[in-house]
């Protein structure tokens, strides 16, 4: 086998140009591969394929958004925004409606009327925030569909003194589902007229001692029989009632 004459004279061993050739070939292959295989939009915006954004943006939405619903159903929307479900978007109950928005006649969103649906949010669960309206689905008007009493777009119970709930809506909604639901605000609080105009300076009255609660709950009170009774003298006499019981939702404490 004829030896190739070394280009740089005898000083460079024969191995060096051979290896250099092999490595040069590998490098050229890599550079060529980079040139042909790296996607065109790679690195336009960062170390990624910018065209990927177009694919992701082009995904079809399933939920239209409540603004879209309001375009046709403005009356129902107005009713809902006036009630306790004002924060509940249409598709929260009716399911994804983008198809309906695009084709109102053929695609219809779901209308959940069955009794199982509402307890998803309103069944009692100790992990739910205190004050969030919850019922025991077994005991709360069994068998009756929720919609027979509650309008889902305006679900609040009928008795709500507007003059109080305007500011104290949360307390009202707590009380409304508690054992104290039937009590008027004025049963326990005295609200001078000035409280409505200057709520900070004119404070409403509050019960001041144990005897106030005792007028219904003490053993010798002349209140309806089903009301729970205690012995005012022996039942934790060092405390006032609301240090342990939350009067607007007494059964949770």
């Amino acid at each position: 086998m004829a030896r190739l004459p070394s280009l740089r004279g005898p000083k460079v061993p024969q191995q060096v140009p051979r290896l250099v050739a092999v490595f040069a070939l590998a490098a050229i292959a890599l550079i060529a591969a980079r040139y042909f295989l790296v996607p065109a939009s790679f690195g336009e915006k960062g170390h990624y394929r910018a065209a990927a954004l177009d694919t992701i943006v082009a995904r079809e939405k399933q939920y239209a958004g409540q603004q879209e619903c309001a375009l046709c159903h403005s009356a129902i929307m107005d009713a809902r925004l006036a009630g306790n479900h004002q924060g509940v978007a249409c598709e929260s109950c009716h399911g994804p409606a983008a198809a309906h928005a695009a084709n109102p006649v053929e695609a219809k969103p779901s209308v959940p009327r069955e009794r199982e649906f509402c307890p998803r949010c309103h069944a009692y669960n100790p992990a739910r925030p205190t004050g969030f309206p919850q019922i025991d689905p077994v005991a709360h008007n069994p068998l009756a569909p929720c919609v027979s009493c509650h309008d889902p777009h305006q679900p609040e119970p009928p008795v709500t003194p507007e003059s109080c709930s305007a500011c104290h809506r949360q307390i009202v909604s707590q009380k409304a589902v508690s054992h104290h639901a039937t009590l008027l605000c004025t049963t326990c609080h005295r609200a001078p007229d000035g409280h409505k105009t200057s709520p900070r300076t004119v404070r409403p009255g509050k019960p001041s001692d144990r005897n106030f609660c005792g007028s219904c709950h003490s053993a010798d009170a002349s209140s309806p029989q089903q009301i729970p009774r205690i012995n005012l003298r022996t039942h934790n006499p060092r405390y006032v009632c609301w240090q342990c019981h939350y009067p607007h939702y007494p059964e949770t404490s």
């Binding site: 992701i56 943006v57 939405k61 939920y63 958004g65 924060g87 509940v88 978007a89 598709e91 929260s92």
Partner: peptide, 23 residues
């Protein structure tokens, strides 16, 4: 999760935010 990126570019909130009943 993409924050529902395809919704964001249309000015919509993510689907989970849209349907959350309690805010």
């Amino acid at each position: 999760c993409t924050f529902c990126y395809h919704r964001l570019v249309q000015g919509l909130v993510p689907a989970c935010v849209e349907v959350c009943p309690t805010g």
